[in-house]
Write a protein that binds this DNA or RNA. Structure first.
Length: 561
RNA sequence: AGCCCUAUGGUGUAAUUGGCAACACACCUGAUUUUGGUUCAGUAUUUCUAGGUUCGAGUCCUGGUAGGGCUACCA
């Protein structure tokens, strides 16, 4: 008996339920702790849905989720990222309320804890350079060796740490190290560096500090300071947990958070590494972090994803410790499901072929009432002008149609979606023999009803009145691809960079209801043919789905093989 | 090589904690359809391996195997 996804409990939620039942905590307090050094991507969305989702589940008993900027490395961080992260989280539908924190706001607290460690004889200032420290750390199989500075006196360490803080050392000339165990099989415990010197302007504290705490030291202290109960992070921090606990156990902290790890999101065909996404932006291979081809939250938003779709996706993939690869089809399904129900439909023709309906007079004009969304009658209808000449998709005609091709061919009949059935009676060609125009006749009385007995009309195609067509631009965006072979990832990038991987179709013929839009339309899923408008000025707050234009190409191609 | 983690259809996850292995996606087949969309019905495919405990093991124990992580003054 498996529970529906919405009620499913992952191992983390089980643990929280147990902690609540045993009285260990009265309410869960989680946190989402991004470093402001890039934009949020779909992988972050998984963590956001987890942490804020738990807070939401327990909101009635005081559960909450903090947004905390883990800004302890001023050389990589920027205010732009802080702003984008806040707005992306809000867009996803979550709210941290009053609970906005910056690690940089408690630099004094970190400093106190470091001083306390020194006083307990648990930390020392090492004045060796990086290379020496690295060499002494040993490797996976051989234990490390003690630094000559390891047994300095407390007084000496206190004094040296003060000089670090006062800027008396140059960068790289001294670090503060925790004194733990140079022979530990866990490399993280071999006297990890917990403070380093960096003369850099911090986006929040300016030049006030020239020493900054390392992640392994700062993170547990931040959690404890904020009274986080459950500190959820990804699998690569598993080996850091002993150090996390060591810091909590030896510093004067107000609470005892617990770290639990879960698997990060891996998506097939998708570049997820922040480093590589940054590279794409810096080398201008994309227009920015919010380029619709990017797997960032803001890129996906421009591409037409809805917050609901992303949240449902996160619900579907669940939380485990298994490090697998999620098929991107699962992501695509979640948007299709959401958009199919909500998005209004419009017609567009990408690769136009002119059709003249000769049974109409020159000045024929009729307003056809078309449903905005066949899934939702309450979305109403719109009037679309039909005239003697219309554009149809070139792929909707085949000279020599094979069986099971239901659209236009010589002598064949199709329905102009929402309108009449038309029969192709003649084909006009140029000197090369290429089709330039179709001559058709309409079958009267076929709006809203089937053609007479004996006339095959199995498909409905999109069309746009030539006289009323809006010239717009529709862009088809590819995903950013990597190749399956990880060694060839860089080559994968090259194919990303290639303009061919992004097809831009100019001068698409658009339905006149889009008249005010100097359109830039993003293809939602070319595999199924959704085009989603990003333009808020178009239909406020709504997404538009253009059907079929590309879907046909694809599904037909698939049937061919 | 040492330490840590993980293993359930093609993919991602469930399994009332030792009691008939299931859900979604993907795939294929058929029906419906004024979007080759949607919807509906159906087919096919599963507990890494070898032992052990047990009336009974996906679940517990032992040994293998495979994958991931760890040798930053990044987070």
């Amino acid at each position: 008996m498996s529970l529906p996804p919405s009620e499913r409990r992952d191992f983390i939620r089980e643990m929280i339920a147990d902690d609540l039942a045993s009285g260990k905590h009265t309410a869960p307090v989680t946190r989402f702790p991004p470093e402001p050094n890039g934009y949020l991507h779909i992988g972050h969305a998984k963590s956001i849905c987890l942490n804020f989702g738990i807070a939401r589940d327990y909101a009635s008993i005081g559960g909450r989720c903090h947004l905390r900027f883990d800004d302890t490395n001023p050389s990589k961080e920027d205010q732009e990222y802080v702003d984008s992260i806040e707005s992306d989280i809000r867009w996803l539908g979550f709210d941290w309320g009053e609970n906005l924190y910056f690690a940089s706001n408690i630099f004094d607290f970190f400093h106190e804890c470091a001083t306390s460690l020194i006083q307990q004889g648990l930390a020392y200032v090492d004045e060796q350079n990086v290379e020496a420290i690295r060499a002494q750390r040993g490797n996976l199989t051989t234990p490390g060796q003690a630094s000559p500075f390891r047994d300095r006196s407390v007084a000496e360490n206190l004094e040296a740490f003060d000089r670090m803080k006062a800027g008396k050392f140059e960068e790289g000339k001294a670090v503060l190290r925790a004194k733990i165990d140079m022979a530990s099989p866990n490399m993280n415990m071999r006297d990890p560096v917990i403070y380093r010197i960096m003369f850099a302007d911090h986006h929040n504290t300016g030049s006030k500090w020239c020493i900054y705490p390392m992640y392994d030291f700062a993170h547990p202290l931040e959690d404890a300071f904020e009274h986080i109960t459950h500190s959820l992070c990804t699998l690569e921090f598993e080996n850091h947990r002993p150090l996390y606990e060591w810091v909590i156990d030896h510093c004067p902290v107000p609470s005892h958070p617990r770290q639990t790890e879960f698997a990060r999101l891996n998506l097939t065909y998708t570049v997820m590494s922040k480093r590589k996404l940054l590279q794409l932006v810096q080398e201008k291979r994309v227009t920015g972090w919010d380029d619709p081809r990017m797997p960032t939250v803001s890129g996906m938003r421009r591409r037409g994803y809805t917050p609901e779709a992303i949240r449902n996706f996160c619900q579907t993939i669940g939380i485990t410790k298994f490090n697998g690869f999620t098929d991107v089809a699962l992501l695509e399904y979640s948007v299709r499901e959401d958009l199919n129900a909500k998005a209004p439909r419009r017609m567009a023709v990408l690769n136009p072929l002119k059709v003249t309906i000769r049974s109409f007079s020159e000045d024929f004009a009729e307003s056809i009432e078309v449903q905005n969304n066949p899934e939702r009658a309450e979305d109403g209808t719109r009037l679309v002008p039909l005239t003697r000449e219309v554009w149809i998709e070139r792929d909707d005609f085949m000279d020599d149609p094979p069986k099971k091709y239901f659209r236009l061919g010589p002598g064949r009949t199709v329905r102009l979606r929402g309108g009449y059935c038309i029969t192709c009676v003649d084909v006009v060609r140029d000197d090369q023999g290429d089709v330039t125009e179709l001559i058709c006749e309409h079958i009267p009385g076929t709006i809203g009803s089937n053609p007479p007995e004996g006339v095959q009309c199995r498909a409905a195609i999109q069309w746009v009145s030539v006289k009323h067509a809006v010239d717009g631009e529709i862009r088809l965006y590819d995903r950013l691809f990597t190749v399956e072979n990880p060694d060839a990832v860089e080559e994968g990038f090259l194919s990303v960079m290639n303009e061919n991987s992004m097809s831009v179709i100019a001068n698409a013929k658009l339905e006149p209801s889009l008249a005010n839009v100097p359109a830039e339309y993003h293809c939602q899923f070319e595999r199924i043919g959704y085009f989603v408008s990003d333009r808020k000025d178009h239909i406020p707050g709504q997404r538009v789905v253009f059907n079929r234009a590309v879907a046909l190409k694809d599904s037909w191609a698939k049937k061919q093989k």
